[in-house]
Design a binder for these strands. Structure first.
Lengths: 159, 159
DNA sequence: TATTTATATTGAACTACTAAAAACAACTGC
DNA sequence: GCAGTTGTTTTTAGTAGTTCAATATAAATA
């Protein structure tokens, strides 16, 4: 019988330490801080994570963050996302499902795309060239409403 | 009535010069060399293109290649591909159709994926978060037969 | 608690790409 | 065909993101 507070069940308190040890990784403060931040702020890049966790861990280095996200990706605890319109790699803790992403080519804003209409077919190319498919990475490139309005406005101003 | 030799029809000789001028770009030797090479070697990165065309154009610089692929992408003559398992951007001349790619996560080999079973749905996420979709970039990550065999063999050698 | 060993830190280096100014070459009109 | 204009390329530097190597540190184990 497990005790779980209302806060826990709502927040789904993650035992990052146990998760790390389960994959044969040591539960360090840096790794847990990275996991915690990525859980609350998906699609963050290494620099953003670094800046965010620095106040709590003043000695942390950007290189350490790079090393951590690499290790965690390798062990499947987080997922690395490389988007056409972002120079740096992004990371997220949501790895259980096969979800995809949509990014505004103007402002770079990124959102999750939970599923694709007709979903399954997207994971089955008709000719795999003899390859065993591990995952399908689908990135939708678009323009968000804000940027669209902004562009239309700019077009009016100087014709 | 057009004259076309057997060689032409087979090789589908491209008039890169005319294609460039049609988009308001000057037909320079560098640009034509880049187009020609990318046509024969799709999914090449800037460095590869640079090395390939250098023998014919000894004064060409890597920076020029970067600039050229950027210009050509901007004018829609080539397409830029960014793959999760490749650090550098790749380029291809095949832009008419909406085809996708499959890459081996082990050796990095890239192949075209002409179509997806059930095709159309992949271009329609169920929630666009208010964004206007411009394109869907689908990359299949997998392991090719050669690498799969290699990995299995290595696993046997040291258990 | 002491020891072992993984992990973090530090500092440097590397790769892909971009920027700015000068040299050059493609298109225009003569 | 030749000269002028302007778009391109070259050259030189620089930047961002990431990785590497050696040392220092801290987590797990006994």
């Amino acid at each position: 019988m497990t005790h779980s507070t209302a806060h826990d069940s709502h927040h789904h308190a993650h035992d990052w330490a146990q998760l790390l040890r389960g994959r044969g990784l040591r539960a360090t403060a840096q790794r847990m801080a990275v996991l915690e931040f990525l859980h609350d702020h998906p699609h963050s890049d290494a620099e953003t994570v670094f800046q965010a966790i620095r106040p709590a861990l003043p000695t942390v280095s950007l290189q350490a963050v790079h090393l951590i996200v690499q290790d965690l990706s390798g062990k499947g605890l987080i997922r690395r996302i490389s988007l056409p319109d972002s120079a740096s790699a992004r990371y997220e803790t949501r790895i259980e499902d096969n979800h995809h992403h949509i990014q505004c080519i103007h402002c770079g804003r990124i959102e999750d795309v939970d599923c694709v209409v007709g979903h399954a077919p997207c994971l089955e190319p008709d000719d795999t060239h003899g390859m065993r498919i591990i995952e399908a990475s689908i990135v939708f490139r678009g323009i968000c409403q804000d940027c669209d309005a902004l562009i239309n406005q700019q077009a009016k101003e100087k014709p």
